[in-house]
Design a protein around this nucleic acid. Structure first.
Lengths: 281, 281
DNA sequence: GAAATGCATTGCATAATACGCAAATAGGAG
DNA sequence: CTCCTATTTGCGTATTATGCAATGCATTTC
């Protein structure tokens, strides 16, 4: 096969895996480009973004379509991710033991509290719904798998805000703070500045729950708690939501059940096993 | 590159996409194999399942790992799906509106089967038509966008009756059962009592279709199937209808096409996420 | 209405690259 | 320590992916 005859400057292994296959690396980078679009994308746009000739990308896409990872809409249309991509993602998520175990009991939690319940994990877009259990009282909602929540404005978001490492949050947090500042928005319990956010997250970690009342979705109250792994990092957020504000009260049965649920599915880091940095290296 | 020197029996395009790339097709089939396992898998198992030499699979996996689609656990360990796979799936699902996706092909379904076709979703009033494709043979009908169907009396309604959670149906189902009981109505295949309804829905779930012949609308036969999401919950019902009763027969081309259409647009949940039939009732 | 533009798609010749085989290395068990 | 299983890596070959350019299709522009 030919290579671009021009540059061969010596810097060779720029994006190739050791022991991997060049063509496959190239193809997978196209898949990532396809994912990075918000919706269906034209061949020329994908090719430009990937830095490859359209004919090459077209052949990759033909194989992706064959595998079901991509689809082509309408006659002579644009490309989008396909059903197989969705199934792959669901399978990947279901390999996460925390999600699987919590899913098994999520229905019980919803039934016991009489509220709708969801599980969310962090993906690079933000907190993302991976499991949803509609309660008896909630018929319709704009929330579904793949929905993402804001960090500042939602119970689920605030849990990640409080438990996730600063550097993972940084990009999105800055963005939301800036938007809030320029729009002149502020909330009853939060101002759009770093100090105020710090105070909020401290409170959330102390109480082990975060909540909002009818802010992100009008008329809907939500309360969320964290399921953590052996390092004390958040793996999943569990959120209950409904139309009554009473579920937020410190002593409420709902709140107690939620915290209990989160604790039972968390792994409490053993306190006196030496600190993690010793074991890490 | 070499090919298996032995068999080249002439059966050529067994699994290759037209205009696609052979190596990529092979690699993606490995990805699918990896997904088909319940958890982490050994190289030799993946290779055997994919029908390829381990060295080939190993190189594919190296590229998958490089792209984040796969991970290798521990030292010299087994392979599993990676974070990028989850992100890919979330992206696919969040931009994937079941109604829109199915709408794109509804016309083809109608043309291929020669029947009229519709899509219906659940709104608080009941099954509601959101897309309608009049077939070549059907000129006029009382069905239009926004029409709602009864639960007991229509193919579309019976699909929702069989796949939707009990609590969402409760109100309307009670109402219809009561009306039928007081009016003394009954049907050839259904009595207005809970046990009879239960038997019907079990049959529907088993056969994956529900149908009626000229009952809801005299002289009109209809057959319906469910498009389900990642949790096994119904998102949309697809219904074909026409004046001939033959389309209801188990082996008919129409029925086969319908079930195929529905499964192609459904997301099959992995076994570990708990199965939907447990939660359905 | 006709030309023109912007796409996606597809032959084709070439040599670059992925493949199969087999050797090597690592890990685990007895 | 030794064997055994399973993963990883070199290497030569010809199969196959690639860039280029021509084709086809559709929508737009004048």
């Amino acid at each position: 096969m030919k290579r671009k005859p021009a540059k061969d400057t010596g810097e060779e292994s720029g994006g190739t895996a050791p022991g991997g296959i060049q063509a496959l690396d190239a193809a997978l980078s196209v898949l990532r480009v396809l994912r990075s679009f918000d919706g269906p994308a034209a061949l020329s746009d994908i090719a430009r973004e990937a830095g490859m000739p359209p004919s090459k990308v077209h052949r990759y896409l033909a194989s992706f379509i064959h595998a079901g990872l991509a689809v082509q809409k309408e006659r002579s249309g644009r490309y989008d991710l396909g059903r197989e991509a969705a199934e792959l993602g669901v399978a990947a998520i279901s390999r996460n033991n925390f999600v699987v175990r919590a899913s098994d009991e999520l229905e019980e939690l919803a039934a016991a509290t009489g509220q709708a319940a969801l599980l969310a994990v962090w993906s690079h877009h933000g907190p993302t719904v991976v499991r949803l259990e509609r309660g008896p009282n909630l018929t319709t909602t704009s929330i579904g798998l793949g929905s993402t929540f804001p960090l500042l404005d939602s119970a689920t978001g605030r849990i990640f805000l409080s438990y996730l490492a600063q550097q993972q949050l940084a990009g999105r947090l800055h963005h939301e703070l800036e938007r809030a500042a320029t729009a002149g928005v502020s909330w009853p319990d939060l101002n759009p500045d770093v100090a105020s956010v710090e105070a909020l997250t401290a409170k959330v970690r102390r109480e082990r729950v975060a909540y909002v009342d009818g802010r992100f979705i009008p008329g809907l109250s939500a309360i969320s708690s964290a399921i953590t792994n052996w390092q004390g990092e958040i793996e999943v957020a569990v959120t209950l939501f409904g139309t009554h504000k009473e579920l937020l009260e410190p002593g409420s049965a709902t709140r107690t059940a939620l915290v209990d649920f989160a604790s039972r599915h968390s792994i409490v880091p053993p306190a006196q096993l030496g600190n993690a940095s010793d074991r890490a290296r």
